[in-house]
């Protein structure tokens, strides 16, 4: 199945691309998508993950056509 993967902020700069499309077998988890997309880096505990723009845990199961995003801790607002 095809999955859209996106990265934001410092993570996007480390990975080197804002997005990629990868092909994976049915039933994989958000953690397994990371391992396939970014094999050179471990999925650190403080990384946040979203599936179709909703926060999910690393054990969430991914389906065909899903958009999976990874990003560092958020720092919006001010002061």
């Amino acid at each position: 199945m095809q999955i859209q993967v996106r990265f934001f902020a410092a993570l996007r700069e480390r990975v080197g691309v804002p997005a990629m499309e990868i092909s994976l077998p049915e039933g994989v988890t958000v953690a397994q998508v990371w391992s396939a997309a970014v094999p050179e880096e471990r999925l650190a505990d403080n990384i946040l993950a979203a599936k179709n723009m909703q926060y999910v845990g690393f054990d969430a199961v991914v389906e065909e056509g899903d958009e999976i995003a990874y990003f560092p801790p958020v720092t919006g607002g001010a002061v």
């Binding site: 934001f8 902020a9 410092a10 946040l48 979203a50 926060y55 990003f71 560092p72 958020v74 720092t75 919006g76 607002g77």
Partner: peptide, 10 residues
């Protein structure tokens, strides 16, 4: 907003 909204400062 500060702790969970997807926003990042550089």
């Amino acid at each position: 907003l500060k702790s969970k909204a997807p926003l990042w400062k550089k």
